[in-house]
Nucleic acid binder design. Structure first.
Lengths: 349, 349
DNA sequence: CTGAAAGCGCTTACAG
DNA sequence: CTGAAAGCGCTTACAG
């Protein structure tokens, strides 16, 4: 096993000082710098013999082109940034993967960052990515004011917002039909005889949460059902809060017979609460969840297509970079109601 | 709304050509380049008055330092790469997030890439990241020969392998105790009276799959239970194959009374098969899965701590970069048996 | 077919 | 306290 030299053994600040450069390759092959560049980049105009000599020098020295230097000269970095809420959330995994696949198809790398739903952290991250001169940015907004990105967009950073709209700037946005999905989900509960329906969602400043609540309210209004204030609860999706709210709605003097949950995290907690509850309560949740079909009853959901959101956004990003796209648009992807049992329970008593 | 200039309106190849540089700021503020650099980097030795003038020029021009250029001069890029199998897999989300958090604490960005379990793609990705001169690389290996990374490691790229060991090179490795976890899980089934226990796992070339099979075999041997060849199945984790194998084991003339599943994807499919099956069959799965506690029966699992794997690996990576770490080590994190019902069923008949 | 010079946007090392 | 020159490792534009 060859001794592997670690950072510690090298003079500080010269991590790559011992890396061979094109200059080293040129010297060894006895050719000019530009000729090495030609060989490395597969450009034409090099005799087979010269090419062979250069290639030998490359192999002997273990040369690998420094793309950072290349980037500085070329302008484009062939990398894009993705700012999302939390990579660990099962909703963002597929979205992120979809963005990555599109990036890969365009020869670009993907830099990921989690904002943890903190607007300041979102901004810090997005601007750090711009400082690295990513070619484009896919942002799932945590904040509601994105004017800080205007100079970057003007300087040529392609930008697409996903899942939630951009705040106070005109930009490409790819969303799910949150309003329509929630409205359909709640209408489904109403169609099964429910009138006392609770809504538990995420913090009201999050666009998707507000839109889904609006959908709930529209469905209730369409059916002429007056909504009690305490049937609606927006706030942090921590299990503690959701549990408290769900229990309150269920044990009220005036208990709900069905609950519509505003996202996957809320749904999971409410399922737990309902499992401990004696009376059967209907449930429809926004976002699909794994194994939803195997629970008793199966969980009826309004599913959005996370991968499609990511794919659509990334494709628009690269079309911006192509110059094919000029006018910002708002794209809305449909949701899908998947019935599995929990949403088809009729009101008890 | 101000007109936003898109890529299309700019001469090709000069995306950032219109970005102000330190030189522009210097000219506008009437100072030298180095003075701008001092202000931008918060270095001492600038009069308050000069600093103010420079700051004004920065704001007026909308200057943002080009970190790509900075990196070229400084040596370190303050970015690390993570090569994993699939960002969309619920196991890798938390792992990835944990790596990101550690990177963030060290002021570094994270570039993610999915190998899709393809050794060639792993290599291509890892080398592309090296060409970008990431400071370090966290790799969840798809391949079994990582000698291609030797020149990079020698050149100073910190490297840590996670989840599976490196192949044919000496490097830091952070693993779960796959062997011990599987052995304990199978021993748990044996303790509940099972002797006919099936094992369905991932492809044998994947280290974790092989180790878990070894754990299964050890537990069976410890209990003096001879293992029939057709009780063990390693292969692709596609639902089709897993379903076929599970059904074969269950409907055999000599059916198993319990199944040990080798990872989360296999577990999910086997749960589906068992749900359709008339006879109750015990199940213990490797990897925890969401909502496992809410199924009927709850799913007993051998859980690994994905976040801890990521955190541990990333921390070692930065310790390599500090120079605090010199000798490659193999770290094994414990697994945890979580009993929820399915693993405590006794053999039927 | 080949290469010397200039430059990408910064930082380093040094001199005033 | 301040700045001119050189250089990081490439590519571009040009000349031979």
């Amino acid at each position: 096993m060859p001794e592997i030299t670690r950072g510690a053994d090298r003079p500080p600040g010269t991590r790559y000082g011992n890396r061979p450069t094109m200059k080293d390759v040129a010297a060894r092959a006895g050719v000019g710098l530009k000729t090495v560049s030609r060989v490395v980049n597969g450009e034409p105009g090099v005799t087979p013999d010269t090419e062979r000599r250069v290639q030998e020098a490359i192999d002997a020295l273990g040369f690998r082109r420094n793309d950072s230097a290349r980037v500085l000269r070329k302008g484009r970095t062939a990398s894009i940034g993705l700012v999302l809420e939390d990579l660990a959330d099962p909703f963002y995994g597929p979205l992120s993967r979809a963005v990555e696949e599109v990036a890969r198809a365009h020869g670009a790398l993907l830099i990921n960052g989690s904002s943890a739903e903190d607007p300041e952290r979102e901004q810090e991250l997005a601007l750090a990515l711009c400082a690295r001169r990513v070619d484009g940015l896919v942002v799932i907004p945590a904040g509601s004011d994105h004017r800080y990105l205007e100079p970057e967009i003007r300087a040529g950073v392609a930008t697409v917002f996903v899942d939630r709209p951009a705040g106070r700037i005109d930009a490409d946005v790819v969303l799910s039909d949150n309003y329509g999905g929630a409205r359909d989900g709640v209408a489904h509960l109403i169609a099964h005889g429910h009138r006392r329906i609770g809504f538990i969602g995420d913090m009201p400043r999050i666009h998707t949460a507000a839109e889904r609540l609006r959908g709930y309210q529209a469905a209730m209004a369409d059916a002429d059902i007056p909504v009690a204030e305490h049937w609606m609860s927006l706030g942090a999706t921590s299990p503690e809060r959701v549990r408290r709210e769900a229990e309150a709605m269920l044990c009220d003097r005036d208990p709900v017979t069905a609950v519509f949950t505003g996202n996957n995290r809320v749904t999971v907690t409410v399922i737990r609460v309902l499992a401990e509850h004696s009376r059967q309560v209907a449930l429809v949740g926004f976002d699909d969840i794994e194994l939803a079909d195997l629970l008793q009853p199966g969980v009826t959901v309004v599913a959005q297509d996370a991968a499609a959101l990511g794919r659509t956004a990334a494709e628009r990003l690269f079309r911006q970079l192509d110059g094919t796209l000029v006018t910002p648009e708002r794209i809305e992807l449909p949701t899908r109601l998947i019935t599995r049992g929990s949403g088809e329970l009729s009101p008890a008593g």
